[in-house]
Design a binder for these strands. Structure first.
Lengths: 210, 210, 210, 210
DNA sequence: AATGAATGAGGCTTCATTCAT
DNA sequence: GATGAATGAAGCCTCATTCAT
């Protein structure tokens, strides 16, 4: 017989988690204090420790919830597309959207977790792996189908795409500018699929004549 | 007449800067204390404040020196190449090398500075801009020369390249694996120039016949 | 009509008391938390406060039970001996055995209670008095019988004996060595009854002659 | 060039040490906070940590100073006596005096340190050993000289004497009664040297005739 | 009667920064 | 110019105790 209902407890935990998400996002991990979070959750300092082992644990839960949210439907919606290019475009669009919608959490992840010594091999890394594995999968399929060149290293490609998006989104976000998700998606997809180089001269023959 | 010579002052400042670089690199910004740095520089705590406004200022100076170092010759050595692809390859190689050689400083930059609210518009950002502008320049030239497709957005390309390298290098660095600079340079250059997609079928016809 | 039977209440109290004994013994008073004890007793934190006023009260009850246990039969078994020396030996043996068997409780008593400001005049002190009074009694009888010198101060003797045993046992206990109860009993009894000094020379002369 | 004179620093350290001695003595180790001690020393909390590694270190320094003080001249003054009995008496007197004069420190030692897991093998234990070794020495000499019975175990005797005194003094101290050092010294010395038992009857015959 | 969630004070310790020397 | 002693504000976390359920 719990003293308060399970729902009430869940609410409390959620409330602390939400508060932590907000505070961490705004002030960074080191810059946030448990007292800040407790105050934001309208809860006593001590209660935070009933629901989370310590400050670090709280951070991980925040990021776990985040990852679980962005993972939902990712694979399904990407695989719903039929061509490699459409799949790639969908993945890029979704990932850009995450950055636009959850900039602060992305920053948190980048600046506090990926850097951390305990990241390698952690549950968070596992979620990250699950997230990026969707890309690996579509590239493998496309290589098998002959759509994508066989000398492509899927893991390098993964780093290119996620690194590029992260960088791109970050810049916009921090310069407080707006990122046009659709346009960026198109440009990035085009660049990746077709490459930088102009087509061979014979196809441009007409242009040369002009 | 200064009580100590200007040269001696410069030596002191350098010594503190060097110490700060080491300590920050090893322990991160929050993890380092002024006392740590002063001890490493064989100087009193108080003296640090004569040369640098505060801990944050010290960090910025460390990164400034770092940037100035990696900027040296960058433009010259890239422009020394004659084709766009060679220029791109050179830029990628150099940037990958920076990550490999100065992992800790890169981490410092990524986790402590780019995140900071005072980064936008700062002197550090200016250096970053100077660093990345080399890429913009070679792309603009290549577009003008018709080597690179005219619909390429040079700023997007910049984010792709630097984002990709950062991501790639970071992964290797944190998984304690070795990053093969030459191989990664080749793969990344190839991917960016030629794109992901396999050439049109008619070009493969010959191969198929073989 | 109580909601639970008196017996059940007693069981609960006993269970808490047993848990407290274990936990206090293992971790010391300050090192133990009510939560520790409640968990060990398989009971809620709050219930502890229904049976005991507070943490301190719990400690006193633990020690009370301890004292009551070691008091049982003490007087009877000591008085069953017929000579003073045998009575003294029995008392020493039993007290040494308590230290060996219940080291942790003894430590608890020494370090947490005897020191406490509320000890003087407390129920625990009363039990301690009852315990040590057995010694006073046999000494008084032996003095009356002429077996023990009349100038002996029984209270000083009491402190000597209990202090000596405590000291001796403590040393062994903390150095993780084994204390030989029988040997220590013999030596201590001999020393106390016969004193330190060698017999006068003239008595040794005869011995030497014999 | 120290910022403040060495003397000033020593004064600070002494002042903190004195404050710690007082506060620990009054409230026990666990009951004292660094803030209490800093306030008593009229110093900031942080300064305590410049002079002492941590709270425990502070406790050990307090006890070290104490031991060094009571060790001074102990051996010299005991060995100045010529007979075993006089030496023993001197040792007992001095030790009783320590308890009377420094009750609180004795309590501190007994309740906080001897109990501690880090006592065994510590510097404090070494000081304790030095202190008690004086007794071992005079007993060994007396045994060699034939004054003390050869079957006496000097280490057992040490525990008897120090245990007895500790117990005796403790009781008085805590009952706020006054301990008569001279009287207790005499009684304890007599008891230990001559033993409890009345002399054989034939020797009392003469006394009876007297 | 029993629970255990909730409180909130308080503990130890660190450290950026200042300023008397 | 240089020192490093001194400050004091936080920070994280624990836990005895209470009280709504």
């Amino acid at each position: 017989m719990p003293v308060i209902s399970a729902k009430r407890m869940q609410d409390r935990a959620d409330s602390i988690l939400r508060a932590a998400k907000t505070v961490f996002s705004e002030k960074g991990y080191e810059g946030s204090s448990i007292a800040d979070i407790a105050r934001a959750a309208d809860v006593s300092d001590g209660l935070v420790y009933r629901y989370f082992r310590n400050k670090r644990d709280l951070l991980y839960h925040v990021l776990r919830v985040f990852y679980e949210r962005i993972l939902v439907d990712l694979e399904r919606s990407v695989m719903a597309e039929t061509t490699f290019e459409a799949q790639l475009r969908e993945l890029i669009r979704r990932h850009l959207s995450v950055f636009v919608a959850d900039t602060d959490l992305c920053r948190l992840f980048i600046s506090e977790v990926r850097v951390a010594s305990d990241y390698h091999g952690s549950a968070i890394q596992e979620l990250n792996r699950a997230y990026t594995s969707v890309l690996i999968k579509i590239v493998d399929q496309a290589v098998a189908a002959g759509t994508v060149r066989g000398d492509i290293n899927p893991r390098l490609l993964r780093d290119i795409i996620f690194g590029a998006i992260e960088h791109r989104a970050w810049r916009f976000v921090n310069s407080r500018g707006a990122l046009d998700v659709e346009e960026t998606t198109d440009e990035l997809t085009a660049l990746l699929t077709r490459g930088l180089l102009a087509p061979p001269a014979r196809r441009r023959a007409g242009a040369r004549a002009g």
